[in-house]
Design a protein around this nucleic acid. Structure first.
Lengths: 251, 251
DNA sequence: TTGGATAGTGTAAAATTGACACAAAGCTAT
DNA sequence: ATAGCTTTGTGTCAATTTTACACTATCCAA
């Protein structure tokens, strides 16, 4: 059986997969793009799972992660970072898991190592693809996720932690925002990633001092309150900053 | 041929290996335990490599890393942390690499993903084992390593960086020191991990303020200068510290 | 025009950082 | 025993950073 499988999908490596924690930000809270595995699986375990797939023998890990992301969202050239490798021998044990894996052409008997990635996508640009995957894809607020299929909940926790650490060192949060954004939105973003409240004035002072934002002479429109000034992230100024050995945002 | 291999070592997974960056500290500088692959390989590429091996199908990744470490040093219950997964399709390309892999029963043709770990061992307790591996193992100062076999140099860089980040958040450096140590030794350790000089008085002030060291009423003996007081790491006090949401040593 | 909602702003006290130099203690060689 | 070498151990001051905290301005909608 292993043999048959290998012949049919000779390019797929049956032992290694990638899973992606695709983060988004709806301007209110941090969200993750999850796959709904449908009714069939729900009797045995959580329906929702991280998007992922086996890797091909002719691609490296980063390429595989980008492929999964592209197939699902149509986005490429996206911020992407490895979280780590996961895999117990008994990682896959539920009947429902086996069924599900068969349906995506994975090898249900084999022991699978999965390499997890997290990516940051600007939700505004997200266009669901027509793949069978994407039809069942949903953004779910991180805080509402209590369980996931396989070991995906564990992977999600690790990804959140990695993101939290990373944002203290690099301003990667801008990848989650539209090109033009307000300081309040940035503030909310940091609060939801760091999972703690930040004083408004202190936050603004700290961000402004970094001098990596360009203020636009443009205001929000159509909001039922005082409109905010819009800003954009200034890549060049950030480069200058890092060239001076900067690696700590102090949050 | 793949078939034969699988039969002989049916427990080995031919696609996944672990490599360990085993850090030590000789009280002067940070070192790494490397394997000398011998004359045979030296004509084609670097002789030195990270210790590693394929994983068995019935162990998880952490267990495999611990096994490699134990086989080599006889140490277990050692601080161990995953660095990440590495693996391009063309990761193994040199003739010498293939020969070497055959000699350790690995599958030279297969595409191999390797999961890298770093570990911190107290060099004082290190006793080389009688394995064929350990006979050719050597501690090499990190700064003197300019190249390694396969993609191990890249892995080493990633491990150093991870260690650097981690020590800013947790006081894991104590795993590299003997039970009793001096502040100067701790100082040197931090300097070699962070790879930059730290002011002596400021360093001592900062460390002491954390209040995670127990001062012993005991002095160094046999040194040709003013003997230093000895300290030990206080696990309980560190636990208290972390319970208050502490996660930043500010280096 | 009024009310509701969020944007935007400053200051003072406390804590932390960074820069800096010299006396004390033990060993060694004479 | 003494002189000299080496490393330990210590304090202060200025500059910077952090924290805590409250009111006015602006726009929309009713």
């Amino acid at each position: 059986m292993q043999h048959i499988h290998k012949k049919i999908n000779s390019e797929l490596n049956p032992n290694v997969s990638v899973d992606c924690v695709i983060f988004g930000f709806d301007l209110e809270q941090l969200t993750v793009l999850l796959i709904d595995r449908g009714e069939i699986s729900s009797a045995f375990g959580p329906r929702m799972a991280l998007p992922g797939n086996l890797i091909y023998d002719n691609e490296n890990l980063d390429m595989a992660a980008n492929r999964v992301l592209d197939e699902l969202t149509g986005l490429n050239n996206i911020y992407l970072e490895q979280v780590g490798a996961f895999g117990d021998p008994d990682r896959i044990h539920k009947e429902s898991d086996r069924e599900w894996l068969k349906s995506i052409r994975a090898e249900p008997e084999a022991r699978v190592i999965t390499v997890a990635y997290f990516t940051l996508v600007p939700m505004q640009q997200y266009k669901p693809q027509a793949s069978s995957f994407a039809k069942n894809a949903d953004w779910v607020p991180v805080n509402e996720i209590k369980e996931l299929a396989f070991d995906h909940f564990e992977i999600l926790q690790a990804a959140k932690e990695k993101l939290k650490q990373k944002i203290k060192i690099q301003p990667i949060g801008f990848n989650l925002l539209p090109e033009k954004f307000t300081l309040s939105q940035l503030h909310r973003l940091y609060e939801s990633i760091l999972d703690k409240p930040l004083d408004k004035r202190n936050f603004r002072r700290k961000i402004q001092k970094l001098d990596i934002l360009s203020s636009l002479r443009e205001k929000q429109r159509g909001v039922p309150h005082k409109p905010s000034l819009l800003y954009e992230f200034n890549e060049e100024k950030y480069q200058e900053l890092t060239q001076t050995g900067f690696d700590n945002f102090g949050f």
